[in-house]
Design a binder for these strands. Structure first.
Lengths: 99, 99
DNA sequence: TAATTTGGTTTATAATGTAAACTTGTTTAT
DNA sequence: ATAAACAAGTTTACATTATAAACCAAATTA
């Protein structure tokens, strides 16, 4: 008798968050996106988005560049290679639960 | 110009939890499972498992029957139809982020 | 009968998520 | 010119959640 254990892969807590996952999902599809665009795409409040962008940046999953668009401040985000890898790993881990 | 929004589906917070998802995943594959088995499959601590089982039961996603196996207490869990539906919906919602 | 194990539950604490309130500067109206 | 409204964020306070440590009752073993 071979009692196997299902062996669930751990889920990266940084990506296992609705808003952060949405942000990463958007960034995967575009070369870059600014704060305003991310807010529109995710439907997040500014405060929440600001916090989650910080966390993704701290983690090295995205790069953030602050500049100006005309005279208005602009926060541009790009996904990093590390972020891309982490996302792929997260999706892979998810499969151990949902497949 | 058609500016579409990605439209991420909301993720059921009850299922968007590593341990609860693992429990549901196990229960999907078997007619029923007891506390001890779930603990082994998920690698969870007893306390954590106890709490998360409660939450899934409160939500109507699983049914819990307390009885005895020999003289030892035994907590048996079964997934409900509602739980099955919720899981399917959760997986479907996930696709809007990861595909 | 004392110590250990089993099968859990309760609870205290830490970590997380979220929105409201605030800030800094810009544009518009008066 | 000045006030009011708006834009783009950030900070913070609060609520929710997750987690493990501590606990408990009964059973088993030494």
């Amino acid at each position: 008798m071979n009692e196997t254990v299902k062996s669930f892969q751990p889920l990266d807590p940084l990506l296992h968050s609705e808003l952060r996952l949405a942000v990463m999902s958007v960034l995967l599809g575009v070369p870059e996106a600014d704060f305003v665009f991310l807010k529109a795409q995710t439907g997040a409040t500014s405060g929440n988005l600001s916090v989650q962008i910080d966390k993704l940046e701290q983690a090295g999953y995205i790069e953030v560049t602050k500049g100006f668009k005309g005279k208005m401040p602009q926060t541009i985000c790009r996904i990093t290679d590390q972020g891309r890898d982490a996302f792929a790993a997260y999706v892979e881990a998810l499969r151990s639960y949902i497949s």
